[in-house]
Structures are given as C-alpha cells and as structure tokens.
C-alpha cells in the first residue's frame, strides 16, 4: 500500500513539478522564498496523499494544495510579502534588466509585474498562466465561474497595463 502511494506521489510530482514551481514564482518574487514555498507544497502533497480519495480530479487536487499552501505560507511569512517599491527605488532593477538576455529580461519583467498584483490576484493569475480553464479555477478556489471570469479579465487588463507602464519607464 505504501509502495502504491509512493509511486503515485512520484508520478504526480514528475508530471506537475514545473507547474507547481511556476505557481511559486508567480506568488513570490524572491527566488529563495519561492523555493521554500515549493518545498512546503511538496511536503503537503506527501502528507495529503494518504487521504486522497479521488473525489476531485488529480489536477484540481494538486492545485488546491498548492494554492492553500501558498495562502498559509503568506500568513506565516507576512514580513516577506512583496511591497511595491517607490519609483526612485526601481532604478537598481532597471540596471539588472539591462544585463540580462532578452528572453530572460522579458520573463523577469513579467515576474516583476505579477508580483505587483495583489495577493489574491497573483493566486488567480498563476492558475491562468498554467492554462487552467475558468471552470477549473472556480473548482480549485471554490468560487463561482462567473465571478472567476470577471476577475480574470480584470487581472489580465491590470497585468498588461503594468507590463506596458514598466516598459515605458525603462525608456
């Protein structure tokens, strides 16, 4: 029985580790804290695997654990919440940006803009960026599909605005 659970755990992590990691990077800008969150999520999946009854789809089950662990992590580590820096403090970031390759620059730019969103919006956008449908996201969060749709459109608009505003600030 234990072997079965271990095999299931291995298979789940192999299939989903990239998504889980990306959710961590979406939720927390700092790479090292994101790694801590990733480790915590893996631990919670391990703990929960014995009680997995198959009522929800596996993907829904995994994402729920990831999102709830992120919520819990944020509550416990409030001092690590990302706060938007005042304008004059953003110069060091722009210097760093210049040194990166174009693709990595764009990605870091995107991560930075995601981190500027409010905490609940970061949770939702992390799922949207993972190609989760509105229905999936509603199921994971326990919200209704209409609310999710409206919320996602607002977040996307905000994110695109942040991306273009930050781009303008660079030049």
């Amino acid at each position: 029985m234990q072997n079965q659970q271990e095999e299931l755990f291995n298979a789940l992590i192999k299939e989903n580790h990239a998504s889980i990691y990306r959710i961590c990077r979406a939720y927390i800008y700092d790479a090292f804290l994101a790694d801590d969150l990733y480790q915590e999520i893996i631990f919670q999946i391990w703990k929960s695997i014995t009680t997995f009854k198959g009522k929800a789809r596996v993907s829904t089950w995994i994402y729920r654990i990831a999102i709830n662990t992120a919520i819990n992590f944020n509550l416990k580590n409030k001092q690590h919440q990302h706060i938007s820096l005042p304008d004059f403090m953003q110069l060091p970031y722009e210097d760093t940006l210049l040194r990166k390759q174009e693709e990595e620059q764009q990605l870091d730019h995107l991560r930075y803009c995601v981190s500027q969103l409010e905490s609940p919006d970061r949770l939702i956008i992390s799922l949207v960026l993972e190609d989760r449908s509105y229905k999936d996201i509603a199921e994971i969060t326990g919200s209704n599909i209409n609310h999710v749709g409206v919320r996602i459109n607002r977040i996307k608009a905000r994110l695109l605005k942040l991306m273009s505003t930050e781009k303008e600030n660079e030049f």
């Binding site: 990077r25 693709e103 995107l110």
Partner: peptide, 21 residues
Amino acid sequence: MNFDDLKMSWQTQTTHTTTKT
C-alpha cells in the same frame, strides 16, 4: 503585447529549484 505571448513566455521558463531545496 498580448496575453497569450506572456503565457507562452511564462510556460517556457526554467523550473529548476536551487540545490538546497
């Protein structure tokens, strides 16, 4: 800039964690 491009860029990021984790 459209959202689908951002999504593609996001999904192609490297997903290794640091060795300590």
